[in-house]
Design a protein around this nucleic acid. Structure first.
Lengths: 166, 166
DNA sequence: CCCAATTATTTAACGCGTTATCTATTATCG
DNA sequence: CGATAATAGATAACGCGTTAAATAATTGGG
């Protein structure tokens, strides 16, 4: 039923407690789930000719009045160079605008245009069937617990990253 | 503590059962967890000058005698065109070899070289500290449950994708 | 047997992820 | 003040993800 989610990022734990190998299966599962989500949304994005990262930028801009580049990158989960390219393209399509800050000329402040907002309003309802389909299949308690466990994993990964940076 | 994992892929559920919005937070959480895993492993990959997808290819090849392109793509979680490029590069570095099948000349059969195996043996122990660090922080029952919930989510996403393709 | 349909793989094109580097602007400290 | 450090953002380079189209080999129906 499930695709192959074999161990890729390590070896099976050689010690006595074989359940400790579980951690090592998480990266592959995360990769596969991410791809499945993207595959699910791809059609909706294509209908409005946006990519997933472009969508995230517009989505963040639709929730604020203005926002500077660094904050936009953080909230849209993008690195600076990706965001620069995306803003250039969205600007050319007339979906976003920018002005530079008068307090600090290094900063740009970005906002969404009415046309950008129109696209947002058009696409958001298209997500509904996917979530409804998912909610029909999955127990809501499981979903809530999965969310909590992912938050916990994220916190622990961040801590492990900080550890390994020393 | 946690990074911003705001809603990006839909709107808050407007109905009476507000917990139904939970599903809509999963994509962002998955994206962030994936990035955290990659950040954790990146240093280890750089030490042997492999990218993460290149690593996955070598890792699969280290577990089999020979394997054809399509099966390798499935097991390394790659699409054909990515795999073609990666095999070309790994071949140039002498880490993999290929021969074409005598039964079906369209097929290639790939295998890892001794030098490729040497890199595998060098890098695998480097993952251990990361998993140990993670296992120290997380309850093993939580990890097992997270794995099971991710499997369930993956199955349901695949089913939802099939639904929406009609 | 032959030719159309199918299958395995590659190529091409475009956008994103990542790192390193560059430019412009602001802040700091003597 | 003025030189230097720090910061915001852009650019360049390289590899991967995705789609569409091309190539080559095989299969199957007439």
């Amino acid at each position: 039923m499930n695709q192959q989610t074999a161990l890729l990022y390590g070896r099976k734990y050689a010690g006595s407690a074989s359940h400790r190998a579980e951690c090592r299966e998480l990266p592959v599962k995360i990769i596969r789930v991410r791809e499945a989500f993207m595959a699910l949304f791809r059609g909706a994005f294509q209908e409005v000719e946006l990519t997933d990262p472009q969508w995230r930028v517009l989505r963040v801009l639709s929730t604020v009045d203005e926002i500077d580049t660094a904050a936009l990158a953080e909230r849209a989960i993008l690195l600076g160079p990706s965001l620069t390219r995306i803003l250039r393209d969205l600007d050319q399509r007339g979906l976003v605008t920018r002005r530079s800050s008068r307090l600090d000329a290094r900063r740009s402040l970005h906002s969404i245009t009415p046309e950008g907002l129109r696209i947002i309003d058009e696409i958001i309802p298209r997500f509904d069937p996917f979530y409804q389909s998912l909610a029909r299949r999955m127990d809501q308690g499981d979903v809530a617990q999965l969310g909590a466990l992912l938050d916990m994993l994220l916190d622990n990964l961040d801590a492990a990253i900080k550890d390994s940076e020393e």
